[in-house]
Computed example of a mutant assay.
Amino acid sequence: MSSRTGTFSRRFWLAAAAVLSILAGPPWVGAARSQGDPLPSWNEGGPKQAILDFVGRVTTAGGHDFVAPPDRVAVFDNDGTLWAEQPVYFQVAFAMDRVRALARAHPEWRDTQPFKGVIEGDATAVAATGEKGLLEIIAATHAGMTTAAFDALVAEWFRTARHPRFQRPYDSLVYQPMLELLAFLRANGFKTFIVSGGGVEFMRVFAQRAYGIPPEQVVGSSGVTTFEIRPDGQPVLIKEPRVEFIDDGPGKPSGINRFIGRQPILAFGNSDGDLQMLEWTAAGTGPRFLGLVHHTDAEREYAYDRRSHVGRLDKALDEAGRRGWTVVDIERAWKAVFPPAPRSDR
Protein backbone atom coordinates (compact mmCIF):
# COMPACT_ATOMS: atom_id res chain seq x y z
CA MET A 1 0.00 0.00 0.00
CA SER A 2 1.45 3.37 -0.97
CA SER A 3 2.38 5.87 1.77
CA ARG A 4 1.82 8.86 -0.50
CA THR A 5 -1.36 10.89 -0.10
CA GLY A 6 -0.75 13.13 -3.06
CA THR A 7 1.65 15.80 -4.29
CA PHE A 8 1.05 19.36 -3.22
CA SER A 9 2.69 22.41 -4.71
CA ARG A 10 2.47 24.69 -1.72
CA ARG A 11 4.67 24.38 1.33
CA PHE A 12 1.64 24.95 3.52
CA TRP A 13 -0.02 21.79 2.31
CA LEU A 14 3.20 19.83 2.56
CA ALA A 15 3.59 20.92 6.17
CA ALA A 16 -0.05 20.15 6.89
CA ALA A 17 0.29 16.67 5.41
CA ALA A 18 3.37 16.02 7.54
CA VAL A 19 1.55 17.04 10.70
CA LEU A 20 -1.45 14.87 9.83
CA SER A 21 0.78 11.88 9.15
CA ILE A 22 2.36 12.22 12.57
CA LEU A 23 -1.02 12.47 14.28
CA ALA A 24 -2.50 9.57 12.32
CA GLY A 25 0.43 7.20 12.85
CA PRO A 26 2.35 5.33 10.13
CA PRO A 27 1.44 6.47 6.58
CA TRP A 28 0.06 3.10 5.49
CA VAL A 29 -2.41 3.09 8.39
CA GLY A 30 -3.83 6.41 7.25
CA ALA A 31 -4.12 5.06 3.71
CA ALA A 32 -5.88 1.90 4.90
CA ARG A 33 -8.37 3.91 6.93
CA SER A 34 -9.15 6.19 4.03
CA GLN A 35 -10.16 3.11 2.02
CA GLY A 36 -12.17 1.62 4.86
CA ASP A 37 -11.13 -0.84 7.54
CA PRO A 38 -9.67 -3.93 5.81
CA LEU A 39 -10.09 -5.99 8.98
CA PRO A 40 -13.54 -5.03 10.32
CA SER A 41 -14.01 -8.21 12.37
CA TRP A 42 -10.81 -7.54 14.33
CA ASN A 43 -10.95 -5.47 17.49
CA GLU A 44 -8.56 -2.57 17.73
CA GLY A 45 -5.45 -3.66 19.59
CA GLY A 46 -2.09 -5.32 19.36
CA PRO A 47 -2.71 -8.16 16.86
CA LYS A 48 -4.66 -6.04 14.38
CA GLN A 49 -2.15 -3.20 14.56
CA ALA A 50 0.77 -5.61 14.19
CA ILE A 51 -0.76 -6.96 10.97
CA LEU A 52 -1.45 -3.52 9.54
CA ASP A 53 2.02 -2.29 10.46
CA PHE A 54 3.74 -5.33 8.93
CA VAL A 55 1.82 -5.20 5.66
CA GLY A 56 2.40 -1.47 5.46
CA ARG A 57 6.14 -1.81 5.96
CA VAL A 58 6.72 -4.58 3.45
CA THR A 59 4.59 -2.96 0.73
CA THR A 60 5.85 0.62 0.97
CA ALA A 61 8.08 1.15 -2.07
CA GLY A 62 11.40 2.68 -1.13
CA GLY A 63 10.98 1.75 2.52
CA HIS A 64 13.67 -0.04 4.50
CA ASP A 65 11.48 -3.16 4.89
CA PHE A 66 10.03 -3.25 1.36
CA VAL A 67 9.58 -6.78 -0.02
CA ALA A 68 9.10 -7.34 -3.74
CA PRO A 69 5.75 -8.98 -4.65
CA PRO A 70 7.23 -12.35 -5.73
CA ASP A 71 8.63 -12.78 -2.21
CA ARG A 72 5.40 -11.89 -0.42
CA VAL A 73 4.54 -15.47 0.46
CA ALA A 74 2.09 -16.09 3.32
CA VAL A 75 1.38 -19.58 4.68
CA PHE A 76 -1.51 -20.64 6.86
CA ASP A 77 -2.33 -23.82 8.71
CA ASN A 78 -5.94 -24.85 8.11
CA ASP A 79 -7.44 -26.76 11.06
CA GLY A 80 -7.88 -24.36 13.97
CA THR A 81 -6.30 -21.49 12.04
CA LEU A 82 -8.65 -20.87 9.11
CA TRP A 83 -11.62 -22.91 10.32
CA ALA A 84 -12.71 -24.75 13.47
CA GLU A 85 -11.23 -28.12 14.45
CA GLN A 86 -13.20 -29.28 17.48
CA PRO A 87 -14.46 -31.73 18.65
CA VAL A 88 -12.46 -33.63 16.00
CA TYR A 89 -10.68 -32.58 12.83
CA PHE A 90 -13.30 -32.21 10.13
CA GLN A 91 -11.59 -34.72 7.86
CA VAL A 92 -11.79 -37.27 10.67
CA ALA A 93 -15.52 -36.52 10.98
CA PHE A 94 -15.84 -37.16 7.24
CA ALA A 95 -13.95 -40.45 7.54
CA MET A 96 -16.10 -41.62 10.45
CA ASP A 97 -19.29 -40.79 8.55
CA ARG A 98 -17.92 -42.82 5.64
CA VAL A 99 -17.28 -45.80 7.96
CA ARG A 100 -20.89 -45.70 9.11
CA ALA A 101 -22.13 -45.37 5.52
CA LEU A 102 -20.04 -48.35 4.39
CA ALA A 103 -20.64 -50.53 7.47
CA ARG A 104 -23.44 -52.57 5.90
CA ALA A 105 -21.07 -53.74 3.17
CA HIS A 106 -18.42 -54.64 5.78
CA PRO A 107 -20.05 -56.78 8.51
CA GLU A 108 -16.57 -57.67 9.79
CA TRP A 109 -16.15 -54.09 11.00
CA ARG A 110 -18.70 -54.65 13.78
CA ASP A 111 -16.17 -56.85 15.56
CA THR A 112 -12.96 -55.01 14.59
CA GLN A 113 -11.50 -51.88 16.14
CA PRO A 114 -11.37 -49.03 15.36
CA PHE A 115 -14.36 -49.57 13.07
CA LYS A 116 -16.47 -51.13 15.83
CA GLY A 117 -15.95 -48.02 17.98
CA VAL A 118 -16.92 -45.69 15.13
CA ILE A 119 -20.09 -47.62 14.35
CA GLU A 120 -21.10 -47.73 18.04
CA GLY A 121 -20.12 -44.14 18.72
CA ASP A 122 -17.50 -45.19 21.26
CA ALA A 123 -14.96 -42.38 21.01
CA THR A 124 -12.83 -43.84 23.80
CA ALA A 125 -12.39 -47.12 21.95
CA VAL A 126 -11.47 -45.31 18.74
CA ALA A 127 -8.98 -43.07 20.55
CA ALA A 128 -7.37 -46.12 22.16
CA THR A 129 -6.32 -47.38 18.72
CA GLY A 130 -4.14 -44.28 18.31
CA GLU A 131 -2.51 -43.21 15.07
CA LYS A 132 -2.58 -46.77 13.73
CA GLY A 133 -6.34 -46.90 14.07
CA LEU A 134 -6.79 -43.49 12.46
CA LEU A 135 -4.65 -44.54 9.49
CA GLU A 136 -6.79 -47.67 9.11
CA ILE A 137 -9.93 -45.54 9.02
CA ILE A 138 -8.42 -43.16 6.47
CA ALA A 139 -7.22 -46.02 4.28
CA ALA A 140 -10.62 -47.74 4.36
CA THR A 141 -12.57 -44.59 3.53
CA HIS A 142 -10.20 -42.67 1.24
CA ALA A 143 -8.57 -45.37 -0.90
CA GLY A 144 -9.61 -47.72 -3.68
CA MET A 145 -11.40 -45.05 -5.74
CA THR A 146 -10.51 -42.50 -8.35
CA THR A 147 -9.53 -39.00 -7.30
CA ALA A 148 -12.63 -37.70 -9.10
CA ALA A 149 -14.90 -40.05 -7.13
CA PHE A 150 -13.25 -38.96 -3.88
CA ASP A 151 -13.75 -35.29 -4.74
CA ALA A 152 -17.45 -35.95 -5.37
CA LEU A 153 -17.84 -37.76 -2.02
CA VAL A 154 -16.21 -34.90 -0.14
CA ALA A 155 -18.33 -32.28 -1.92
CA GLU A 156 -21.52 -34.20 -1.12
CA TRP A 157 -20.47 -34.56 2.53
CA PHE A 158 -19.95 -30.83 2.83
CA ARG A 159 -23.41 -30.32 1.32
CA THR A 160 -25.22 -32.63 3.73
CA ALA A 161 -23.19 -33.04 6.95
CA ARG A 162 -23.67 -30.74 9.93
CA HIS A 163 -21.36 -29.87 12.80
CA PRO A 164 -22.62 -31.53 16.02
CA ARG A 165 -22.56 -28.34 18.09
CA PHE A 166 -23.31 -25.54 15.65
CA GLN A 167 -25.61 -27.52 13.31
CA ARG A 168 -24.09 -25.78 10.32
CA PRO A 169 -22.25 -27.12 7.27
CA TYR A 170 -18.65 -27.78 8.21
CA ASP A 171 -17.30 -25.56 5.47
CA SER A 172 -19.29 -22.60 6.80
CA LEU A 173 -17.30 -22.70 10.06
CA VAL A 174 -14.45 -20.69 8.62
CA TYR A 175 -13.13 -17.77 10.65
CA GLN A 176 -14.43 -14.45 9.40
CA PRO A 177 -11.40 -12.47 10.69
CA MET A 178 -9.04 -14.81 8.84
CA LEU A 179 -11.04 -14.48 5.63
CA GLU A 180 -10.54 -10.73 5.92
CA LEU A 181 -6.84 -11.20 6.55
CA LEU A 182 -6.44 -13.43 3.49
CA ALA A 183 -8.23 -10.88 1.31
CA PHE A 184 -6.19 -8.01 2.77
CA LEU A 185 -2.93 -9.79 2.05
CA ARG A 186 -3.89 -10.64 -1.52
CA ALA A 187 -4.98 -7.05 -2.11
CA ASN A 188 -1.44 -6.06 -1.10
CA GLY A 189 0.40 -8.40 -3.44
CA PHE A 190 0.77 -11.46 -1.22
CA LYS A 191 0.33 -15.00 -2.46
CA THR A 192 -1.53 -17.03 0.15
CA PHE A 193 -0.98 -20.76 0.71
CA ILE A 194 -2.50 -23.39 2.96
CA VAL A 195 0.15 -25.60 4.59
CA SER A 196 -1.72 -28.15 6.67
CA GLY A 197 -1.50 -31.64 8.07
CA GLY A 198 -4.90 -32.36 6.52
CA GLY A 199 -5.26 -34.36 3.33
CA VAL A 200 -4.39 -32.25 0.31
CA GLU A 201 -7.18 -33.67 -1.87
CA PHE A 202 -9.76 -33.21 0.91
CA MET A 203 -8.81 -29.52 1.32
CA ARG A 204 -8.69 -28.78 -2.40
CA VAL A 205 -12.40 -29.53 -2.67
CA PHE A 206 -13.34 -26.46 -0.61
CA ALA A 207 -10.26 -24.18 -0.44
CA GLN A 208 -11.10 -22.08 -3.49
CA ARG A 209 -14.72 -21.61 -2.48
CA ALA A 210 -14.07 -21.09 1.22
CA TYR A 211 -10.88 -19.03 1.19
CA GLY A 212 -10.19 -17.94 -2.38
CA ILE A 213 -7.08 -20.15 -2.35
CA PRO A 214 -6.73 -22.20 -5.57
CA PRO A 215 -5.90 -25.92 -5.48
CA GLU A 216 -2.32 -25.42 -6.58
CA GLN A 217 -1.69 -23.27 -3.49
CA VAL A 218 -2.78 -26.01 -1.05
CA VAL A 219 0.02 -28.04 0.54
CA GLY A 220 -1.08 -30.99 2.65
CA SER A 221 -0.55 -34.61 3.56
CA SER A 222 -0.95 -36.96 0.63
CA GLY A 223 -1.42 -40.61 -0.17
CA VAL A 224 -0.03 -42.55 -3.08
CA THR A 225 -1.97 -42.38 -6.34
CA THR A 226 -1.46 -44.59 -9.38
CA PHE A 227 -2.25 -43.88 -13.02
CA GLU A 228 -4.57 -46.31 -14.78
CA ILE A 229 -6.45 -46.48 -18.06
CA ARG A 230 -9.90 -47.98 -17.67
CA PRO A 231 -11.35 -50.50 -20.18
CA ASP A 232 -13.34 -47.66 -21.75
CA GLY A 233 -10.07 -45.84 -22.45
CA GLN A 234 -10.54 -43.25 -19.70
CA PRO A 235 -7.31 -42.32 -17.84
CA VAL A 236 -7.81 -42.07 -14.06
CA LEU A 237 -5.81 -41.68 -10.87
CA ILE A 238 -6.53 -44.31 -8.20
CA LYS A 239 -6.06 -43.51 -4.51
CA GLU A 240 -3.95 -46.18 -2.81
CA PRO A 241 -4.01 -47.06 0.93
CA ARG A 242 -0.42 -45.88 1.38
CA VAL A 243 0.89 -42.61 2.81
CA GLU A 244 3.23 -40.59 0.61
CA PHE A 245 3.87 -37.43 2.62
CA ILE A 246 2.85 -36.13 6.08
CA ASP A 247 2.67 -32.35 6.09
CA ASP A 248 2.77 -31.77 9.82
CA GLY A 249 5.38 -30.70 12.37
CA PRO A 250 8.83 -30.85 10.73
CA GLY A 251 7.11 -31.94 7.53
CA LYS A 252 5.72 -28.45 7.01
CA PRO A 253 9.05 -26.72 6.23
CA SER A 254 9.86 -29.62 3.92
CA GLY A 255 6.48 -29.23 2.22
CA ILE A 256 7.02 -25.50 1.80
CA ASN A 257 10.39 -26.10 0.21
CA ARG A 258 9.09 -28.91 -1.98
CA PHE A 259 5.86 -27.37 -3.23
CA ILE A 260 6.28 -23.59 -2.86
CA GLY A 261 10.01 -23.09 -3.31
CA ARG A 262 10.16 -19.79 -1.44
CA GLN A 263 10.62 -19.12 2.26
CA PRO A 264 7.50 -17.34 3.58
CA ILE A 265 7.60 -13.92 5.19
CA LEU A 266 4.31 -14.48 7.04
CA ALA A 267 3.06 -17.63 8.77
CA PHE A 268 -0.02 -18.31 10.88
CA GLY A 269 -0.76 -21.43 12.90
CA ASN A 270 -2.54 -22.47 16.07
CA SER A 271 -0.84 -25.56 17.47
CA ASP A 272 2.45 -27.28 18.20
CA GLY A 273 2.13 -28.94 14.81
CA ASP A 274 2.78 -25.52 13.30
CA LEU A 275 5.86 -24.70 15.37
CA GLN A 276 8.45 -25.76 12.80
CA MET A 277 6.64 -23.84 10.06
CA LEU A 278 6.80 -20.70 12.19
CA GLU A 279 10.45 -21.31 13.05
CA TRP A 280 11.33 -21.82 9.38
CA THR A 281 9.56 -18.60 8.43
CA ALA A 282 11.26 -16.68 11.25
CA ALA A 283 14.68 -17.95 10.14
CA GLY A 284 14.63 -15.90 6.95
CA THR A 285 16.25 -12.51 6.53
CA GLY A 286 14.30 -9.27 6.47
CA PRO A 287 10.88 -8.54 8.00
CA ARG A 288 8.87 -11.50 9.22
CA PHE A 289 5.41 -11.92 10.78
CA LEU A 290 4.60 -14.96 12.94
CA GLY A 291 1.10 -15.45 14.27
CA LEU A 292 -0.72 -17.95 16.47
CA VAL A 293 -4.49 -18.25 16.87
CA HIS A 294 -5.19 -18.95 20.55
CA HIS A 295 -8.59 -20.53 21.20
CA THR A 296 -9.91 -18.78 24.29
CA ASP A 297 -13.62 -18.29 23.54
CA ALA A 298 -15.70 -21.17 24.89
CA GLU A 299 -18.95 -19.27 24.29
CA ARG A 300 -18.57 -18.42 20.62
CA GLU A 301 -16.26 -21.28 19.67
CA TYR A 302 -14.01 -23.38 21.96
CA ALA A 303 -11.38 -22.75 24.63
CA TYR A 304 -8.37 -25.07 24.61
CA ASP A 305 -4.59 -25.08 24.41
CA ARG A 306 -2.00 -27.08 26.36
CA ARG A 307 -4.01 -30.22 27.19
CA SER A 308 -6.27 -30.49 24.19
CA HIS A 309 -6.46 -33.79 22.30
CA VAL A 310 -7.03 -31.72 19.14
CA GLY A 311 -4.87 -28.73 18.21
CA ARG A 312 -2.65 -28.82 21.27
CA LEU A 313 -0.89 -25.49 21.79
CA ASP A 314 1.90 -25.83 24.35
CA LYS A 315 5.48 -25.52 23.12
CA ALA A 316 4.51 -23.09 20.37
CA LEU A 317 2.75 -20.84 22.89
CA ASP A 318 5.87 -20.72 25.03
CA GLU A 319 8.02 -20.05 21.99
CA ALA A 320 5.73 -17.21 20.91
CA GLY A 321 6.21 -15.56 24.29
CA ARG A 322 9.99 -15.87 24.10
CA ARG A 323 10.26 -14.62 20.53
CA GLY A 324 7.61 -11.92 20.55
CA TRP A 325 5.37 -13.58 17.99
CA THR A 326 1.80 -12.29 17.68
CA VAL A 327 -0.72 -14.34 19.66
CA VAL A 328 -4.33 -13.75 18.61
CA ASP A 329 -6.57 -14.30 21.64
CA ILE A 330 -9.92 -15.04 19.96
CA GLU A 331 -12.05 -13.77 22.85
CA ARG A 332 -10.26 -10.42 22.89
CA ALA A 333 -9.13 -9.94 19.31
CA TRP A 334 -12.16 -10.93 17.22
CA LYS A 335 -15.50 -9.14 17.05
CA ALA A 336 -16.98 -12.11 15.22
CA VAL A 337 -15.76 -15.68 14.86
CA PHE A 338 -17.81 -17.17 12.02
CA PRO A 339 -19.63 -15.55 9.08
CA PRO A 340 -23.43 -15.38 9.42
CA ALA A 341 -25.07 -18.79 9.11
CA PRO A 342 -26.21 -19.76 5.60
CA ARG A 343 -29.88 -18.93 5.08
CA SER A 344 -30.86 -22.59 4.79
CA ASP A 345 -29.44 -23.21 8.29
CA ARG A 346 -30.95 -20.23 10.12
Rank of each mutant, 00 (worst) to 15 (best):
S21R: 15
S21W: 04
I22Y: 09
L23D: 00
A24P: 01
A24C: 12
A24W: 08
G25S: 02
G25Y: 05
P26D: 05
V29G: 01
V29A: 08
V29Q: 12
G30V: 07
G30L: 15
A31G: 09
A31R: 14
A31F: 02
S34T: 05
S34A: 15
D37T: 03
D37R: 07
P38W: 03
P38R: 07
S41D: 12
W42M: 10
N43S: 14
E44P: 05
G46C: 13
P47V: 11
K48N: 08
Q49M: 14
A50K: 12
A50S: 15
A50Q: 13
I51D: 04
I51E: 05
D53I: 04
V55H: 06
R57A: 15
T60G: 09
T60F: 00
T60K: 12
H64D: 15
D65K: 10
D65Y: 05
V67Y: 09
P69Q: 06
P70E: 13
D71G: 14
N78G: 13
N78K: 10
N78H: 13
T81N: 09
W83K: 08
W83S: 14
P87K: 13
V88E: 11
Y89N: 14
F90P: 03
Q91W: 12
A93V: 07
F94L: 12
A95T: 04
A95K: 03
M96S: 04
M96R: 15
D97K: 09
V99K: 03
R100N: 06
R100A: 10
R100Y: 00
A101C: 07
L102T: 01
R104H: 11
A105H: 07
P107W: 06
P107G: 05
P107Q: 06
E108F: 03
R110K: 08
R110D: 02
D111I: 01
D111E: 15
T112D: 02
Q113R: 06
P114D: 04
V118A: 05
I119G: 03
G121R: 07
T124F: 04
A125W: 01
V126N: 05
V126G: 05
A128I: 03
T129K: 12
T129P: 02
T129A: 04
K132N: 06
K132F: 01
L134T: 07
L134R: 13
E136V: 01
I138T: 01
A139K: 04
A140T: 00
M145S: 01
M145F: 00
T146H: 00
A148W: 00
F150N: 03
F150A: 04
F150H: 08
A152S: 10
A152E: 03
L153Y: 02
V154Y: 01
A155F: 00
E156G: 06
W157E: 06
F158I: 05
F158C: 08
T160C: 03
T160Q: 11
R162Q: 10
